[in-house]
Amino acid sequence: MGGRSFASKTDIFVSLAVILLAAAVYMLFSRSTGGSYAEIYNGNTVIKRVSLSADQTFTVDGYDNVVFEVKDGAAAFKQSDCPDKICVRTGYIKNNGQSAVCLPNRLTLRIVSGNDGADTYTG
């Protein structure tokens, strides 16, 4: 098939460049300091917001089988009834802007800085 080779030296450089770029972007994202609130979204609506300073487990209305946990300033999907468990496997997140997503349930857990003084609200 033509003159195309299976692999070339360029591949190594391009691969390394992509990984370095990814690492740089990742560090840029995670350099932001730890967040202070966890927000639960249904689609793009905030349905619950809790502080990361107090350890707790909780659920949100209408999703009794999805359990969230706050521990040591980080939050996670602890349990979920979805088939793939991608949300649970994401593990604990604690930096601003990080998120864990449960697509089957359309739930997103997101860490935000939040400075409006409200501890908890449900809406």
Partner: peptide
Amino acid sequence: LTLIMQSGYALWYTPVLLTAGVIMGSVTG
């Protein structure tokens, strides 16, 4: 996924997926 969730938060995941692509693409290739 970003369209379905109607939020840009998942974009945070791009670096992880780029790295995954390089590694898994090499393996499958």
